[in-house]
Design a protein around this nucleic acid. Structure first.
Lengths: 212, 212
DNA sequence: GTCTATACTGTGATAGAC
DNA sequence: GTCTATCACAGTATAGAC
């Protein structure tokens, strides 16, 4: 009976319920903090009793895992859209991708903690949920290497630099733009150090980024 | 009776008990994760029943607060010792302080999460516990400014760069040295960008750092 | 298959005896 | 100061209604 019309409808309904639960979990995490997520609050938001959540997820960690996978999938799509744009000069590309990463990361503290910090004790993402994280990193490395920067150490430093800017923004100026305004400058500092040539005059000025 | 010999002895004993509890809390946090800290495990380690902890701390958050303050105090002492060393050339000083910060931060994930990440929902450090954090930042800023780098944006970028290196090391290579080995290079990148002159030949080579 | 009802364990916290 | 007793609520698990 696998694949029959009814089983497909059922599978769709199940997936919709799972998505509804995950969305509610994100709301709770944003409001109360990632580690303060409770099944009771999630269930309340979707109109269920807490034990009913176990019909859709094996455990609380399984909900975290679904959140983790969804977040990295959205992140991958955002970065991929930025990198798939019409070919641009190297510096402008690095600037725009860095801005994309920065904005995505600083937009949601709970999401950033789940994706990049080991904030939930005992939680380890499953292989499936972790896959997009690996893909987006590989794509970013390949992109930078295509500009002639083949030194992996230089790429690691760029990742640290962008990540550090995000951290500072979130920890020391949440909701502000103190480090956001410095992002282009920091990226240029790295680009100069690795010898990335200045963009030709025709290229767009990276300072047009909104800096949100 | 305040200040009488007996009250002093009592206060000392109280402080010793508080310290014993905080030390036990650190052990639990390191073993099980910061957010997995439970009063039961702490009490067990100091040979008490959980409610007895409330004789020394008003709440679990008060224990977190004492841990936070102690960590930043130790951090301040470590950095101050590095900066109070005999006058050195600007670059070498920045390298050594960066290494000091990096090693201290990467030595203990739980401590780093409590000090720099908003990992515990609802926890806000008290003014007293936060004071050393402000002091150590001010001292670092003053140190860098004494080298002629008065642009606060440049200093913010340096802080982000070092913090990002720590984050990457902790998140992507815990226990390893992948980003530790890149630290001197990253700091030089920043020093070049802000125009910090090369150290005179007589100065020590920063590459002698152990990179642990 | 999905949800409800109920119960078990563990956690932060309080009250009161000694 | 430390203990016992207790509470409210968390995550988790199972049994059973529909």
């Amino acid at each position: 009976m696998v694949g029959s019309p009814s089983s497909i409808r059922i599978a769709e309904r199940r997936e919709a319920s799972r998505r509804e639960i995950v969305d509610a979990a994100w709301e709770v995490a944003r409001e109360h903090g990632l580690a303060a997520l409770t099944l009771r609050l999630v269930a309340e938001r979707v109109g269920m009793r807490p034990p009913s959540l176990y019909s859709h997820f094996d455990s609380k960690h399984a909900i975290y895992d679904a959140m983790f996978g969804q977040a990295w999938l959205e992140y991958e799509q955002a970065v991929a859209a930025e990198m798939a744009a019409p070919p641009r000069a190297p510096r402008e590309t690095v600037h725009r991708v860095a801005r994309c990463v920065f904005d995505f990361s600083t937009a949601d503290l709970a999401r950033y903690q789940l994706m990049n910090q080991r904030s939930v004790p005992g939680f380890e993402p499953s292989a499936e949920s972790y896959a997009p994280a690996v893909r987006v990193l590989d794509a970013a490395v390949a992109q930078v290497e295509s500009f002639g920067v083949t030194d992996r150490g230089a790429i690691d430093i760029l990742l640290a630099l962008i990540g550090g800017m995000v951290d500072m923004q979130l920890a020391n100026d949440p909701g502000g733009d103190r480090w956001s305004q410095l992002l282009d400058r920091a990226v240029d500092m790295w680009a100069d150090a690795v010898g990335l040539p200045p963009d030709p005059p025709g290229a767009a000025d990276p300072s047009h980024s909104d800096g949100a």
